[in-house]
């Protein structure tokens, strides 16, 4: 297999993983005020867990397997829901407390920045791999 852009396989997987993380953060922000999810309880904050996978085909120049990344699972945050006093709310309990999701929008914004920057870093890897390949191609040029 012709391999012009080395190191791209793991970077592509990382880009994919960061995209999934972004999707999960979007889901959290969208459901930050959802008091009733599919199981009737307030929405629980989701978080992604990344894991390393060894790619079988030799991808880099030395022929050793490349370790890339994938999303192992998407898990719910174990923190309890935040209780807010709002007796007029349809989902309020006998004491007038409403269980709100354990999503902290500020934390989600910070996580979103981290995901965005990580995506950017991987894009920089792609850019550099491309420019290295093109620079190698210009070795033999006379001008």
């Amino acid at each position: 297999m012709l391999n012009c852009l080395n190191g791209i396989t793991s970077t592509a997987a990382a880009l994919n993983a960061e995209r999934i993380r972004m999707d999960v953060i979007a889901e959290n922000i969208a459901n930050a005020h959802t008091t009733r999810s599919a199981d009737g309880k307030p929405y629980q904050r989701q978080q992604v867990v990344f894991e390393t996978v060894l790619q079988n085909q030799p991808g880099n120049i030395t022929g050793t397997p490349v370790s890339s990344v994938q999303v192992a699972r998407i898990e719910a945050d174990k923190h309890p829901p935040i209780l807010v006093h709002n007796p007029g709310h349809p989902d309020a309990d006998a004491h007038g407390m409403v269980a709100m999701p354990n999503v902290n929008v500020h934390q989600e914004m910070a996580d979103m920045l981290v995901a965005s920057r990580a995506f950017e870093a991987n894009l920089a890897v792609v850019r550099n791999a491309r420019s290295m390949a093109l620079q190698s191609l210009s070795i033999g040029k006379r001008s």
């Binding site: 852009l5 592509a12 994919n16 894009l123 792609v126």
Partner: peptide, 10 residues
């Protein structure tokens, strides 16, 4: 994903 298409083209 968009990046996969771009990487393939590249």
């Amino acid at each position: 994903p968009l990046h996969q298409a771009m990487i393939a083209v590249e």
